[in-house]
Design a protein around this nucleic acid. Sequence first.
DNA 1: TTTTAATATCGTAATATTGCGATATTAAAA
DNA 2: TTTTAATATCGCAATATTACGATATTAAAA
Lengths: 107, 107
Amino acid sequence: MGITKTQIFDQRQNELAQIFKILGHPARIAILQYISKQNACICNDLVEEIGLAQATISQHLKELKNIGLIKGEVEGKSMCYCINIDKWNELQKDLNSFFNTTKQNCC
Amino acid sequence: MGITKTQIFDQRQNELAQIFKILGHPARIAILQYISKQNACICNDLVEEIGLAQATISQHLKELKNIGLIKGEVEGKSMCYCINIDKWNELQKDLNSFFNTTKQNCC
DNA sequence: TTTTAATATCGTAATATTGCGATATTAAAA
DNA sequence: TTTTAATATCGCAATATTACGATATTAAAA
């Protein structure tokens, strides 16, 4: 055990859970907030800003990239990350749809 | 390691992450959807419906209860769970606020 | 009272996540 | 070319999560 039984759930349930899971870490929340706060896309001032090791930040960035929430662009020897605004908006709509649908018929 | 460094994040970041984390499991998504689908609050048909062991379902219910998303009421020897609609709406607003705030100033 | 049914809790095994040092890799700068 | 700086990846240790059987607990029913 310790393994989530994804087979017994439908695709939407698994996808929703996956997204929530990725957002379920304070470092990733902080990264998203910091990327957004800079009105230009910034790179790894994140290491300084957040106070986790470079390897750790890189790992978190990868997970955010995997679900498409941010995108990275090479800029010389740096990386410039920014929020993928289309995906961001789509996700927001999707979560609202989950919230709205799920509260229907409720006690 | 393996321990999340909550001290280096602010309260809101930790709280948001905590909520996302709880929602980040397909069983808990399925539980919320099923509870909502029944127009009366239902109890542990969840075990039958979802196909996880009774102990496992009970554990997931506890986590959802901990963040206040559902509430349980004793009904004879059964438990009747339902979505805490106030908390639900509050949460939805909160997440929207996160999404709206975080996309500002973005590239 | 004893039995039964529903639920919660405990203990534990399997697996996943977090975090980091060490080590690639890559591209500009010297 | 060699060096340097920024980032990614690997491998591991520490901890957390998931799942479940076994065992409490609780309240109705017999």
